[in-house]
């Protein structure tokens, strides 16, 4: 029984002899054709997949563009994306009234509420009491007792800070100033 090891067979590789070249040529040609057909089938399959995906997006209605290409309408009538376009129109009702005077000048005025004059005045006085509106935050205060907003208003600094006085004066002077402030506050 003739046996050849792998090494012995490799040594004979250079002595290769093609027994029937025409048969092998035909075989190679057939494989090449198969590869081309397989490739064509694969491309056809991919096109079908793409067409199916496109069909899902629009109803199949198409038009011919200026370059002669067939295009679908889906890109023209689709809904505007929430993030597309930086300048969206503000369609809200404007909260102002335009008044045109005798000379033709137009001025915008904030609309007044429909409440009576007395109520309006009283509400304004409430809001403007003390000049500063402050909301006390009980959480950050030492006492849990609600703070009267008027007390906060009274804490408002009434004397402006004078940098020259601060630089020029002695420690005693500063103390005096502090005392004055305290007096004023009281």
């Amino acid at each position: 029984m003739a046996k050849y090891t792998e090494e012995q067979l490799f040594e004979l590789k250079t002595e290769a002899h093609v027994p029937q070249p025409t048969i092998l040529e035909a075989f190679n040609k057939m494989i090449e054709e198969v590869q081309q057909q397989t490739l064509a089938q694969y491309q056809e399959y991919q096109q079908q997949q793409q067409q199916q995906q496109l069909k899902k997006k629009h109803n199949g209605d198409t038009y011919i563009d200026e370059h002669g290409n067939e295009r679908s309408y889906h890109h023209m009538n689709r809904r505007r994306g929430s993030r597309s376009g930086g300048n969206k129109p503000n369609l809200r009702k404007k909260n102002e009234i335009v008044q045109v005077d005798e000379d033709g000048w137009a001025t915008t005025i904030q609309p007044t509420t429909t409440k009576g004059n007395n109520e309006e005045e009283s509400s304004n006085t409430k809001n403007n009491a003390g000049g500063v509106r402050a909301r006390p935050n009980n959480k950050n205060l030492g006492s849990s007792k609600a703070v009267d907003p008027r007390e906060i208003v009274s804490d408002k600094q009434t004397k402006a800070f004078n940098a020259f006085a601060a630089l020029g004066g002695s420690d005693d002077d500063e103390d005096e100033d502090d005392d004055d402030d305290e007096d004023n506050d009281e």
């Binding site: 002595e15 093609v18 027994p19 048969i23 494989i31 198969v34 397989t38």
Partner: peptide, 28 residues
């Protein structure tokens, strides 16, 4: 059937002339 051979030399001649295993089309 593609071809029949009976010697080592013929084997190499055929092997060198046909597509290798990693060159075969799918489902071959």
């Amino acid at each position: 059937p593609v071809i029949t051979f009976a010697s080592v030399e013929e084997f190499w001649g055929i092997y060198n002339s046909i597509p290798q295993a990693n060159q075969l089309p799918l489902k071959s």
